[in-house]
Simulated assay, not measured.
Amino acid sequence: MAEVKIQAESRTEFGKGAARRIRRDNKVPAVLYGHGSDPVHITLPGHDTMLALKTANALLLIEVEGGESHLALPKQVQRDPLKGFIEHVDLVIVKRGEKVQVEVAVHLEGEAVSDALVVTEHAAILVEAEATHIPTQIVVSIEGLEIGAQIHASDLTLPTGSTLAIEPDTLIVNVTAQPTAEQVDAEMNEAEAQAGVEKDEPAAEPVAAAAE
Rank of each mutant, 00 (worst) to 15 (best):
40 V>Y: 07
114 S>K: 14
98 E>Y: 00
49 T>V: 06
179 P>A: 03
62 I>W: 00
38 D>K: 13
147 I>E: 10
35 H>E: 01
70 H>N: 08
23 R>H: 05
1 M>E: 11
72 A>F: 03
197 V>P: 04
97 G>V: 03
9 E>S: 15
69 S>P: 05
209 A>P: 05
196 G>H: 03
135 P>G: 04
124 A>P: 01
146 E>S: 14
124 A>D: 11
136 T>Y: 00
24 R>P: 00
105 A>T: 14
6 I>N: 05
148 G>F: 04
206 P>T: 04
197 V>W: 02
69 S>G: 04
149 A>N: 12
177 A>R: 11
131 A>V: 06
185 D>V: 15
120 T>R: 08
46 G>S: 05
30 A>L: 07
181 A>V: 14
172 I>M: 07
117 L>M: 10
113 V>D: 02
46 G>C: 02
153 A>D: 02
15 G>M: 05
104 V>N: 00
28 V>I: 15
63 E>T: 06
95 K>R: 13
110 G>I: 03
152 H>D: 03
170 T>A: 15
209 A>K: 09
85 F>S: 11
86 I>W: 13
135 P>S: 02
199 K>V: 10
178 Q>I: 13
183 Q>P: 01
75 K>D: 11
91 L>V: 05
101 Q>W: 12
169 D>I: 08
29 P>R: 05
203 A>T: 09
59 L>A: 11
188 M>I: 13
16 K>F: 12
193 A>H: 13
44 L>Q: 01
13 E>W: 12
149 A>C: 07
8 A>H: 08
6 I>S: 02
137 Q>P: 03
182 E>N: 07
102 V>R: 01
17 G>K: 11
16 K>R: 13
66 G>P: 01
97 G>S: 01
32 L>M: 02
90 D>S: 02
186 A>P: 00
15 G>N: 09
148 G>N: 06
9 E>K: 15
52 A>I: 04
160 T>V: 14
150 Q>S: 15
113 V>L: 09
22 I>E: 04
132 T>E: 14
42 I>Q: 01
205 E>M: 14
45 P>H: 08
191 A>L: 12
200 D>G: 07
84 G>T: 01
84 G>M: 05
